[in-house]
Design a protein around this nucleic acid. Structure first.
Length: 685
DNA sequence: TACATGAGGCTTTTT
DNA sequence: GCCTCATGTA
């Protein structure tokens, strides 16, 4: 970012930023400053006197939107008031505000895929689909994923099942029934999952009059990362800009890496055809990386099916630089050591650590490195993979907060009740049915299920009474703290819930101290909120606000060092570092076995293409230096280097180091392997 | 009947 | 780590 800010705009960028009104597509390769073009465009509009609230900026992560606005605000303080956020946030705002048009009594509660899967399991049970031994249905997450895919791709469920769950093709009818019942379950209880948010927003915007009324709030719509929109998101952007046509979308089809969740990278290709009067601009000058890094990226681009037509990236600002280095080491431990050694050497330089990122295909591939960094007290922050708020213990406490927010939140209640000793699914369901029984509530005048639970708990059958009383007492106290209002009310409620949860935690996860520390850490997040609904909405729609930050900054070698970044390649999209290390680029990870299997089985190589793009994204994150560290042995034995890196054209852009240096401290069976053997391994024998 | 517990299987990527 | 399934227990 620093560099981009220092470089004057080139002609193409200036043309894009200052482009007149009307639909505009900017096709911008990696590192060509496309984000900067959007910032510039926003600044331009503000200079023309457009009110900031009338500009709508949509991206995929809130962090990206916030950073863009923050940088723009340095030139134009008003930029902070530009409206924007993720597609899901914008969609949820529309749904929340217009819930009555959808026949909903109140703004819905957002549930995450994990809750959605649990709800599906509950509905399955209710339909009697779970009990039948003869008919086996997919597991709940697989069901949730299939339903979600069908929605995002706008495909009939049968097609998704045929493709993703072929062994259940005979059960399509039951699955359709289940999907319908599940939709009913959500509507009844006022839940929406991530997909529903987009679908409902589209529904609200369907009628032209309503659409124009809602869209009138903005005069300009700016969209980043357009290559990753799915059909619903593209529609959202188009509908919100329909009245004025001032829609600017920016993206790079070669960085489309979210096909698995319905991204349609053909949408960006088709934009000019689908949107009447759209102009198209191309950016190819790269301001981020050295030419040596771009050579590798271009070589990977050459592997793509349409690679021949692509314009190669040119370094417009950096010197040639050194070639990316491919380093082969014995195993994952050795890889972790090599990376940690290199980082340790730079600890003394202020800020150097934060200029590094380690990128992986799968979140678990960074685990050995995390262990080594912890041991050496090198601070790091992890992005991607299991998010903090998805950990079981965090969800437990959050369930408590959710009940305070909405005492009718069945999923939250069930989760809490099942934490009690002697309470399983059945008892929990019965208890909630009792607490939330509408007739009983009306008869006794209890305001909500919590009030009724407080009265009922002491009367329950012996075995679970004690635990139940503890729980509802804690909830009641916490509810009292919240209703008291004030700066610390949410944190106060959280503390009360933690007091209750402590013993539960000890019983549920014996001997795991980290989880208690997590919850203490999480309080820092909670403290920032004065209102419970804001906290819960943020957590539901934007879990990355609380991504796990590990390796306590208090570690004494740390001294407030800004941490190294460890990230999945997906989560690294749009970001850049001086020095990037790619870990785990073996042929069983990139391309992923799923993509390979599908290509072999059906001849459909689209997912393989996406894996190439993923590697392209990873390489182009680096400004000055790129290292690839390949371990010869992984958890599944010997592993070849990724076929993409092994391609002669790509290999030629790399410096190959077969582990002549350190292989890892002391434990060097690497020394037992001859260079020839290593070569054979590299070439896949 | 409902819950607890342990073995075994599987695990991509994310809003 | 997480889910499912089978088996033992109140």
């Amino acid at each position: 970012m620093d560099l981009a800010a220092a470089t004057p705009l080139n002609d193409a960028q200036r043309a894009a930023a200052g482009f007149g009104d009307g639909p505009l597509l900017v096709v911008a390769g990696a590192g060509t400053g496309k984000t900067r073009v959007i910032e510039e465009r926003a600044a331009h509009l503000l200079e023309r006197g457009v009110a900031p609230e009338r500009i709508l900026l949509m991206t995929f992560t809130r962090r990206a939107a916030a950073e863009m606005l923050e940088r723009t605000a340095r030139r134009h303080p008003q930029a902070r008031r530009v409206d924007g956020g993720t597609f899901h946030h914008v969609a949820y705002r529309i749904v929340g505000r217009h819930h009555r048009a959808l026949g909903l009594a109140r703004p819905p509660t957002v549930i995450d895929p994990d809750d959605a899967a649990n709800a599906i399991a509950a509905v399955m049970e209710r339909l009697g689909l779970g009990r039948d031994r003869r008919r086996r249905l997919p597991r709940k997450q697989a069901l949730q994923a299939a339903f979600s895919r069908a929605t995002n791709l706008r495909l009939p469920l049968a097609e998704v099942v045929a493709r993703d769950l072929p062994e259940f093709a005979g059960e399509v009818e039951a699955l359709q029934r289940l999907r319908r019942a599940w939709a009913g379950y959500k509507l009844e209880r006022g839940y929406v999952d991530y997909d529903d948010v987009l679908v409902m927003a589209a529904k609200v915007l369907e009628a032209p009059e309503a659409r124009d009324r809602i869209a009138a709030a903005w005069s300009y719509v700016l969209v980043d990362e357009y290559q990753d929109v799915n059909a619903w998101q593209a529609e959202l952007a188009l509908r919100l800009s329909a009245p004025h046509g001032n829609l600017m979308v920016v993206g790079d089809p070669r960085q489309s890496i979210y096909g698995f969740r319905g991204a349609r990278h053909d949408k960006i290709v088709a934009f000019a055809d689908e949107v009447p009067g759209a102009s198209v601009l191309h950016l190819t000058d790269n301001y981020r990386s050295t030419q040596a890094i771009l050579d590798a990226a271009n070589a990977v681009m050459g592997l793509m099916e349409d690679g021949g037509h692509a314009r190669p990236l040119r370094a417009a600002a950096r010197p040639a630089g050194g070639r990316p280095r491919l380093r082969v080491v014995e195993d994952e431990r050795a890889a972790a050591d090599v990376v940690a050694d290199a980082l340790q050497e730079r600890l003394a330089e202020p800020g150097a650590l934060a200029g590094h990122a380690v990128l992986v295909r799968n979140a678990y591939q960074s685990v050995p490195l995390q262990g080594e960094l912890l041991r050496r007290r090198i601070p790091f922050a992890v992005y991607g993979g299991l998010r903090f708020t998805e950990a079981a213990h965090v969800k437990d406490v959050l369930a408590g907060l959710r009940v305070l927010h909405n005492a009718f939140d069945e999923l939250a209640w069930l989760r809490l009740l099942q934490l009690l000793e002697g309470v399983g699914e059945t008892t929990a369901a019965r208890a909630f049915a009792d607490f939330s029984d509408a007739d009983a509530l009306a008869a006794t005048g209890d305001a909500d299920p919590l009030a009724r639970a407080v009265r009922r708990a002491p009367l329950m059958a012996g075995r679970i009474r004690e635990g139940l009383v503890d729980l509802v007492t804690a909830l009641r106290d916490a509810a009292g703290a919240v209703s008291g209002g004030g700066a610390h009310s949410v944190a106060g409620a959280y503390d009360r819930l933690l007091t209750w949860y402590g013993p539960v935690l000890a019983r549920r996860f014996p001997g795991e101290g980290q989880r208690a520390l997590d919850l203490a850490f999480f309080r820092i997040v909670v403290e920032r909120y004065e209102a419970l609904d804001a906290l819960l909405a943020d957590l539901a729609l934007d879990p990355d606000a609380t991504r796990q930050a590990t390796s306590a900054p208090g570690a004494e070698s740390g001294e407030g060092l800004r941490p190294l970044t460890i990230s999945t390649i997906h989560s690294a999209k749009g970001l850049e570092w001086d020095h990037v290390v790619l870990l785990g680029v073996d042929d069983r990870s990139l391309p992923s076995p799923w993509a390979v299997r599908r290509a072999l089985a059906t001849g459909d190589a689209r997912e393989i293409e996406e894996e190439k793009r993923l590697l392209y994204v990873a390489i182009t994150r680096a400004r000055q230096r790129l290292d690839v560290v390949h371990a010869l042995y992984g958890r599944q034995g010997m592993q070849r280097l990724s076929r993409f890196l092994d391609d002669p054209g790509v290999r030629a852009t790399l410096d190959v180091d077969l582990g002549g240096g350190r292989g890892g401290p002391g434990d060097g069976p690497a020394a037992g392997l001859s260079p020839d053997e290593l070569l054979d391994a590299l070439a896949g024998e």
